[in-house]
């Protein structure tokens, strides 16, 4: 093994080690973490659903903002004081409104948010149904001619007939020319 090969091997080993050692970025700082792992797990779970009001599309668990850190600490303080998960969320909602929750509550003002996607799917399903029923109804009105010509309307049948007639006549012409040449 040459020196170069050894060097490359060593570099590859170092890179692999670095990848193993890397952990996903986390905003929670070591001094915030609670000693009780069960409480800490609940704090993390709550934090993932609390919006950082400064960055607005990050949870306080992801955000490095100052306010997010303050809120993380408050979440942990409430848990240590014996609050349930719902009580901790209630505490924050009382101060910052429903907006602080990343999962909006089911209410009159948010009903569209929750039901909207299903309404659109239902609308699409109805549209598809109406479309296909319209097609079969149209097929039915054309009567027996439809069934005997495998789903083609009379007009389509006529066009195909004329196209086929054209094709066969031009084919005969071609043969004739070939024969001449």
């Amino acid at each position: 093994m040459t020196l170069w090969q050894k060097l490359i091997l060593a570099a590859a080993g170092l890179m692999a080690l670095a990848l193993l050692a890397a952990t996903p970025g986390m905003a929670v700082l070591p001094d915030e973490i609670l000693d009780d792992p069960a409480l800490e797990a609940r704090a993390r779970e709550i934090s993932k659903d609390i919006r950082c009001l400064v960055c607005q599309n990050q949870s306080i668990d992801d955000s490095n903002a100052d306010l997010a850190r303050d809120l993380r600490i408050i979440v942990r303080e409430r848990l240590v004081a014996g609050d349930s998960n719902a009580e901790v969320k209630r505490y924050l909602v009382d101060r910052y409104g429903d907006y602080v929750l990343l999962t909006p509550p089911m209410a009159l003002g948010t009903i569209l948010l929750w039901v909207g996607p299903f309404v659109f799917v239902a609308f699409g399903a109805v549209a598809v149904f109406v479309w296909f029923r319209g097609r079969s109804a149209a097929a039915a009105t054309t009567g027996p001619k439809m069934s005997e010509s495998a789903g083609l309307s009379a007009e389509e049948r006529r066009r195909i007939d004329s196209l086929l007639a054209e094709d066969s006549s031009s084919g005969e012409d071609g043969k004739g020319e070939g024969g001449r040449g």
């Binding site: 009001l53 607005q56 009382d94 910052y96 409104g97 429903d98 907006y99």
Partner: peptide, 8 residues
């Protein structure tokens, strides 16, 4: 929309 209405 980035302004959060006060809950108070």
């Amino acid at each position: 929309p980035s302004i959060v209405p006060s809950a108070l």
